[in-house]
Simulated scan of single mutants.
Amino acid sequence: MPIEAIVFDKDGTLFDFAKTWGTFGRSLLMRLTKGDVDRAAELGSVIGFDFEQERYTTDSIVIAATVEEIAEVLISHVDDVTLQEVVDMMNAEAAAAPQSPAVPLGPFLKGLQQSGIKLGVATNDSEHPALQHLESAGIREHFDFIAGYDSGHGFKPGPGQLLAFAAQIGVEPSRIAMVGDSVHDLQAGRAAGMITIGVLTGLAEAEALAPMADVVLPDIGHIPAWLVEK
């Protein structure tokens, strides 16, 4: 059965996770601790982030959780700040984070569109920073659908965002591929009844993704060749 549409996760899929979010983590923690490096390092350990190396652990909550879920973990470890202020701070830092594309995204996405494939983005990031990231990379116009965790469709591993994409473009879920770098992404794809493609530009290894993936590829740039072979 041919694939008529593809919905992508954003962080770790369209954009290389480690190269993009290390600076974000350091900057956020410095703001939360008012520049106290020792406290920032301690706070980093709470969310699975090595402050000195600017590197996330493979089980870091930052990888797949929503902004609110991360803020709820952080709030009990910081003083004189509300949960909403932490969320707002995270969204501001995320929107300003420089993105590192996993592959040259413009030609890649244009090629998929020229082959008749509809494109979407489903991220557990907030919608506003997600739009900022896609705009800054010059690829916003390639997508028929973009949803964050706060767009009204729920968030992964639930299938709501993916089913909303399918409904908007009028394509059966079984003819859509969900592409992501985390188990949450692939669980969402399976729950929506979609084909699942794992990529290795996040922090999860192939062995972790394989049980939930129809195929695991090094990065999204390998998708066109896989579609031809499929």
Rank of each mutant, 00 (worst) to 15 (best):
G48Y: 10
I61Q: 03
Q53F: 08
H77V: 10
E42C: 13
D36L: 01
E93V: 15
L28S: 02
E72W: 01
L74A: 07
V62F: 03
V78G: 09
G25K: 06
V86S: 10
W21P: 02
Q53S: 12
Y56F: 14
S45I: 05
T23L: 09
Y56M: 05
V86R: 07
G25I: 04
S27Y: 08
V62A: 02
L83W: 09
F49S: 09
D88F: 02
I61W: 02
T23C: 06
D38I: 10
H77M: 09
L43K: 07
L74T: 05
E68H: 02
A64R: 12
T33W: 11
M89I: 08
D50G: 14
S45E: 11
I47R: 02
L32N: 15
V73E: 14
S27P: 04
E93T: 06
G22V: 05
A71G: 01
V81T: 09
V37H: 08
T33S: 13
A41H: 11
D50T: 15
F24E: 11
L83P: 04
E52S: 15
A95P: 03
E42P: 10
M30Q: 12
D79Y: 02
S76G: 14
R55H: 15
E54V: 08
R55A: 13
A95V: 06
E93W: 07
R31P: 03
F49A: 08
A64G: 13
M90N: 01
F51H: 09
R39F: 13
V87Y: 01
G48C: 11
L74N: 07
T33I: 12
L32V: 15
T33C: 12
T66M: 01
T58W: 08
D50P: 15
E52F: 13
T57R: 11
Q84D: 04
T57M: 10
S76M: 10
